[in-house]
Write a protein that binds this DNA or RNA. Structure first.
Lengths: 341, 341
DNA sequence: CTGAAAGCGCTTACAG
DNA sequence: CTGAAAGCGCTTACAG
């Protein structure tokens, strides 16, 4: 139905191969012919059929993005969407397309990834999460499908491409920021301790406290995914009396936001009573009142670097297991103040 | 590199056409041959090359999902991700893939959509937003690319496929819910009045109040996208004295969540002082404390219906401009109580 | 019930 | 500098 290379060739009075070569701007075609062909292409509105091109080149110019199996990832929502957007942006620039692989169960996800990979619909994948014993990673690895991870791998760390922040140091910096402001009793609130990111940030938090000569109290560490009742009890324990923590490291801006509301239930205000610092420097950090001090992770570079590196890998220019660690920085806003008790 | 239909044919001692037909489970092939061929396929790990198939069938089995140009859509984040997940789920089921079209500018978005559409990489699109004078819609319409909208179209309403809630009635129901609880002074907080959804919900809110014989006070209507200072001033005006609204209709759960925090700044508590109802019945409604009463919009059906209908349209089984309006319902939680002043 | 052949829209050696 | 031909991995009339 649409106009093909043949139509262009006929109308321009050349062979299809000549048209193909001018599309690729091959130096073996004279400038004159190229111009003529280009004119015709414009005239009849030719657009190359990417499917046909893909078939002969054995390449699809598309990257698959793998979302974690959906469940309880509530607070991470915003992170994934910005990842998708960032990847999409970098891909637009490189003339790649992006496909989404997602599923309600691990089987569904794997199935979808398999048909994409083996059906030749993507050249490679970007995995947006990291967890232990992940059959998806196992599959990609076994089948030697090109892939990259945003985050820190549990396994194959030295054999795969990944882009990440140093979340241990980031966690440390968050805690240090509060320590430096004079806070002594600092809590850590995270979502789902099984996630690599959270574990690392928690580790950094722990180190910072230890380095400051403060004994780490397990009671100060809270997991949002705790059952309702248990969570409520712990909150009561922590903030229900006068000896409450004056500082909080929240593993995510949204968690910080929710936290501030919960605190108001105990009659505590941010930052007057409690200082809080989040991660991601997301839109929520800017939109919440007071504006949230947050650790910026350069998510833009996270996505663009991943895309560029993965493309190198896919076109075979590079086979090394490159790791890229991006810097982070504290963005100071209004949710933290000095505490000199 | 990978195993093709030819390999299967040779090993099974049949022609490639026979292999192709057994893949499609054609009735013209004997059960015996099919079984033999299937065995061989399994044995040597054959997976059809979707690109090749797409080339001959002139179909790609993929749906493009169009995200709005990114800017200030903060609170909607969660909505788009759940749409992507829902679409992906329905597509997995129907053996379709999903590609993402997104851009930082309208030009970038359009460009990306064009190469997808004209490059033959998608069979159709789902548009996840609705706005006035949208060049994207214009393009899709002119070029007769199959597409569907989730939401209510500004233009071509009678010529296109869309799936939506009745947001006017939903807005009305939200306001009525509060009215019925005895609230008289009810505020409406929304994000970006240019969006169709918000306009509709606001309209419903207005109607409900009028129907109840309450004059609608423009001061009670707040737009989150207002500049910082102006927003703060309006909040002060509304909640800075004793005559504050006792009920709030928030156009989104996240806005409601943020609102509750802001209110705590005025010493007001949910639901003791102010009752609040949100939209989307999102994870935030469940996770916030108190749990949020919210209007469920059946987002799952929103996505699945859209996918099914769009597929019908793409395969040409249907050319009508179907509209599907999904029901909604109030999910009662703990953020609203009676008010008998 | 099965196979040989043409074709989907491109690209790329190979000749000239 | 340009063209004729083969081929990427499939599907589908057309014959038999």
């Amino acid at each position: 139905m649409s106009v093909t290379i043949k139509d262009v060739a006929k109308k321009a009075g050349v062979a299809t191969s000549t048209v193909s070569r001018t599309i690729q701007d091959s130096p073996s075609i004279s400038e004159k012919t190229k111009q003529n062909v280009r004119r015709v292409m414009k005239e009849i509105g030719y657009r190359p059929n990417l499917t046909a091109r893909g078939l002969v080149n054995q390449t699809t110019q598309t990257i698959g993005v793998i979302l974690p199996v959906s469940q309880g990832q509530g607070f991470q929502n915003t992170f994934f969407l910005s990842m998708i957007r960032g990847i999409s942006k970098a891909c637009n620039e490189k003339k790649y397309m992006v496909s989404i692989a997602s599923g309600t169960t691990e089987e569904e996800l794997l199935e979808s990834i398999q048909t994409m990979a083996e059906g030749g619909r993507v050249d490679g994948f970007i995995v947006l999460y990291s967890k232990k014993d992940d059959p998806i990673i196992e599959y990609l690895h076994q089948e030697k499908v090109p892939y990259a991870m945003i985050g820190k791998p549990y396994k194959y760390e030295n054999e795969m491409l990944y882009v990440d922040n140093d979340n241990v140091i980031a966690g440390k910096d968050a805690a240090n920021y509060l320590l430096q402001l004079g806070h002594k009793k600092i809590a850590f609130i995270g979502e789902d301790a099984h996630q690599m990111v959270i574990r690392e940030r928690l580790k950094g938090y722990t180190q910072a406290l230890e380095d400051a000569g403060i004994k780490v109290d397990q009671e100060l560490i809270l997991d949002v995914t705790l059952p309702e009742a248990a969570y409520r009890r712990k909150m009561e324990q922590l903030f229900g009396n006068n000896d409450f923590p004056t500082g909080i490291v929240a593993s995510d801006d949204l968690i910080a936001l929710n936290m501030s509301y919960l605190l108001s239930g105990f009659g505590l205000k941010i930052p007057t009573d409690v200082s809080i610092i989040g991660f991601n420097n997301s839109i929520f950090a800017e939109k919440s009142r007071p504006e949230l001090t947050s650790i910026d992770l350069h998510t833009d570079s996270l996505t663009s670097q991943t895309v560029y590196q993965l493309i190198e890998l896919m076109v075979g220019k590079q086979t090394l297991a490159v790791k890229i660690i991006l810097p982070h920085q504290v963005i100071e806003r209004q949710s933290c103040i000095r505490n000199d008790n």
